[in-house]
Amino acid sequence: MSLIRLEGVTRSVPLPDAPALTILNGVDLTVDVGDHVSIVGRSGSGKSTLLNMLGLLDSPTTGEMYFDDAPVASLSSAVRDRTRGRDVGFIFQQFNLLAGRTALENVTTPLLYSTGREFWKRSTIAAEMLDRVGLGSRMTTMPEKLSGGEQQRVAIARALVRRPRLILADEPTGALDVETGETVMALLDDVARNSGAALVTITHDPNVAALADRHYRLERGTLTLVTEELVR
């Protein structure tokens, strides 16, 4: 059983006074639990659109998409939102930490949308997660007081705090220097492998892409499986 599966997915957007713009074209992709997949491509190749689709934030124009073998098109908006909250963790290039909230409060945020023990023990769980990414001593620090690497680690902790089965990282090292980027990616890779979650990384950094087990290149909306050498 696959975690997420795309079959012949296209995504196009209508343009005024022009033919529709095709962003994704016949994409086939299967991601299983524990997979580590990288997708490389130039700017404007459709990487972020594909990532949004995998995160149930966007829907295909044509083609089929399945999550846990269930057709996503049949899921209501609320079910999609809840599935995303429970099973998908996002890591953004610009971190997207909530301003005015401490590192701990940022990591607690996804747990506000959970239920049961996860909800009621959210502060404890978030604190454990921050400790795990090495920020146990920075819990009450505001994001603007953290370095770029620390901010991305908070973002990683936030993405993983609900133990998602799918982690989607959009240029996770894009705003970091090389050394910090490597440290962050090593951490992300480690945490993902230990939790058994699938990790899909979108990047144009060959070194980051090389950490994955499976590599894809997205070019003009078309997704192609490539070898590690070709990525580099």
């Binding site: 995160g55 934030l57 609320a78 909250g85 996002f90 996804p110 609900r162």
Partner: peptide, 11 residues
């Protein structure tokens, strides 16, 4: 960001 972490429209 909240929506990406599972907040429904109703929430």
């Amino acid at each position: 960001v909240r929506r990406s972490f599972g907040a429904t429209a109703g929430r």
